[in-house]
Amino acid sequence: MRDLTNEILELIRRTSSSLPPDVEKRLKESIEKEEPGSAARGALETIMKNIELSRTNSTPICQDTGTPIFQVHYPVGWSTIQLKKQIRAAMEQATKKSYMRPNAVDAVYDKNTGNNLGGDDFPYIHFEETESEELTIELMLKGGGCENVGRQYSLPDNTLGAGRDLAGVRKVVLDAVQKAQGKGCAPGVLGVSIGGDRGSSYIKSKEVLLSEMGTRNSDPKLAELEERLTSESNEMGIGPMGFGGKTTVLDTKIIGLSRLPASYFVSVSYMCWAYRRRKMTVKGEEVTYD
């Protein structure tokens, strides 16, 4: 099996230092919505300068290089044991090269491992076998500030008057946005999953963030709710960094899961404006990056 350590290192470099074009475009468009001279507009202008500088110098967009979340789709015959070793080796090298900050802290003994390798769970890697001949590795870096403002609700939620239906989902998501204020480094992107158990619900609310900006759910009911949540979130006036302003949420993505008859979870993962996600594809000898 081919050794992809260097190619994965390049994936990490790109993810940490070069924001995807669709995210950059959406941020740029939002500048015009904010008042000239306002703190909100100033924040967005600084953000745009930072995006350019990081890309030019291969330096991290944000010093919190976050939880590395890998999604690997591998063709029949590839070894996940080998792939995991290569991902971990690449992560260690990326840390040495300052593409990543040492970010794995032992939660019991409070020691930073210094190389971004924690136990078996850090970095987080999800493997899925595919019938395709292409190997794809997607990487998302999700910082702690936005991770901390994520929320999970068990419906019905009586304080919000949220029942077990899409009307209830809407209410709890809006509540999560209001509670987040600017703390998740607004303007953010919402990943929402409906159903599942507590664990799968949170995982899927992050996986749904791997799709491009503006990707709508194929179910028209959910697509409509996605649009509505983005627009209603922006009515709250929280604005970039919570300075006040028109741009609080850039996009919303919803996924519907199966649930137990007894449970109805809604999980909201908040992704900061530094929405770092990149993908590499290996086809035969060729390796390409999105």
Binding site: S17, T46, I47, K49, N50, P60, C62, D64, C185, M241
Partner: peptide, 8 residues
């Protein structure tokens, strides 16, 4: 400005 790490 949160996230503006290279710039800052």
């Amino acid at each position: 400005i949160g996230g503006a790490a290279s710039f800052l």
